[in-house]
Amino acid sequence: MEEYVKIVTRDRLYKDEMESLMTKFLFLEIVRGMRLTLKTMFKKPVTRRYPKEKRQAKPGFRGLHALVRNPETGNAKCVGCGLCAAMCPSKCIYIYTREGDNHEKVVERYEIEVLRCVYCSLCVEACPFQAIALTETYDYAAFSKQELFYTKDRLLKNWDDFMTEEKKKRYFESFWGPKTSFFRENESQATFKGKS
């Protein structure tokens, strides 16, 4: 403690009385400050000019939502189980399903109200089929609420636009793939765990 107090007191800054006196009379502290500002003047500015040069998002960034497109059928992977909507803390996912011709479940509408989303990515973790993803896109400001209400088609389009091959791979391998092996092995079956 004693040592600490000594370090922060003023007289440690100068070698002796003479130097302290010189500092006071010749405003050496001010001169030192002025030299620093003059030096920084010739350094490169750290500013990023945002709309012109965009910063690459860090891996694992949670941005705009996208519905994963099944490469075989060309349709959404989503089966309409409703887990994401159930897990969503801000209740911003709306899913409407109906019975199809062969008595299968057809996802009629899948909508996300992006303005209400808190980007917790619980929907991604909940999804047993990895059917929903958060892309690394962050600049999607719009002038109306309507533009930020994403329907199924637009979410699928997001997938095509923002998730290129390599990104897709890295994304699911490293970050947002469901962590339990249980879900990974039973792709055909969806089970609702409920809130625990």
């Binding site: 003047m41 010739f42 500015p45 500013t47």
Partner: peptide, 9 residues
Amino acid sequence: VIGRMQMRM
């Protein structure tokens, strides 16, 4: 000048 001194543009 002040921008450059504060490492802005």
